[in-house]
């Protein structure tokens, strides 16, 4: 072929994910993600506090429908996410490699992420049976306690484990009927954005998972203090961060879940107790009589 040159590749625009749509940040800001050779991989959205507030509105809107969806349906949707991730494994491995992760480790991480989704898909219609109770009260009442989702959860996803850590935290939140707003790893943001595309194609209703890219230093306060967020999960930071999160969280008595120093590749990286942490126990009484 005369004058042949290498094909000009088509670069991907990495955007944020709010309410089932892929907008750019409303702030118009970006940060450069560089490869180890210094070349630019992407201009990543530097999500703003306004983006976060919009995402909370989307998450709250989605909560009613998602929390009312049957456990079987939620399980199938989580399984579907795993199916699509499996089909796009190569893309995720490439993205991890592009961001400096070894190919061997990248493969392992993608496979573990798929398996983790399958794990939680299977829990969808079982954790309730593990954690609920019929309570033998002394009076003539039927009394039972069941789990219900806490509501909207904000999640500061792990910096180091950009796909497995992300999936390991999102899955137990949403399998229990919560909706969430997530801040992806700032150093390794690509997989989170691509994972949003997987979610989008997996029948996860818009708004159930919202993913922002940006900086925890800028957004943690907002994630912790927002009055329409019921729980916050964070995975990094020193005692100063922990203190700041809890002080802000007290504004509306948020549930605060610190998952720092968690090895997401370990056995303890998955558990039905992680589902129960963003659940509320509801107890119902009714008289027994004629």
């Amino acid at each position: 072929m005369a004058g042949s040159t290498a094909r000009v590749p088509v670069a991907k625009t990495y955007k944020i994910y709010i309410g089932g749509k892929f907008p750019r940040t409303e702030s118009g800001r970006y940060f450069k993600l560089n490869a180890s050779d210094g070349s630019v991989i992407a201009n990543v959205c530097q999500g703003s506090r306004k983006d976060f507030r919009n995402a909370v509105v989307a998450a709250r809107s989605a909560f009613g429908g998602w929390s009312a969806a049957s456990a079987y349906l939620r399980g199938q949707i989580l399984y579907r996410i795993a199916e699509l991730l499996e089909g796009r494994s190569d893309q995720f491995v490439s993205e991890l490699v592009l961001q400096g992760v070894s190919r061997r480790k990248a493969k392992k991480e993608v496979v573990a992420s798929i398996d983790r989704l399958i794990y939680y898909a299977g829990w969808s219609d079982k954790y309730q049976q593990i954690f609920s109770a019929v309570n033998p009260v002394s009076s003539a009442h039927f009394n039972f306690s069941v789990l219900e989702p806490t509501g909207v959860v904000s999640l500061l996803a792990p910096e180091d484990s950009s796909l497995l850590g992300l999936v390991s935290n999102i899955a137990p939140i949403i399998v229990g009927g919560n909706t969430c707003v997530v801040l992806a790893s700032a150093q390794l943001p690509l997989c989170a954005v691509s994972f949003a595309e997987v979610l989008h194609a997996s029948d996860v209703p818009g708004g159930v998972v919202n993913i922002l890219t940006g900086f925890a230093e800028e957004l943690t306060e907002q994630f912790a203090s927002h009055m329409d967020v019921n729980a916050i999960v964070y995975c990094d930071g020193d005692s100063e961060v922990a203190k700041n999160v809890q002080v802000r969280a007290a504004d509306n008595v948020k549930r605060v879940l610190a998952r720092c120093d968690q090895d997401w590749t370990a056995d303890a990286g998955q558990s039905p107790y992680l589902i129960s942490e963003t659940q509320e126990t509801k107890t119902t009484w009714h008289p027994i009589g004629g």
């Binding site: 109770a133 309570n135 033998p136 009260v137 002394s138 009076s139 009442h141 009394n143 306690s145 126990t281 107890t283 009484w285």
Partner: peptide
């Protein structure tokens, strides 16, 4: 109504 066996 309250009971020791009933979470509150």
């Amino acid at each position: 109504k309250f009971d020791p066996t009933s979470p509150f």
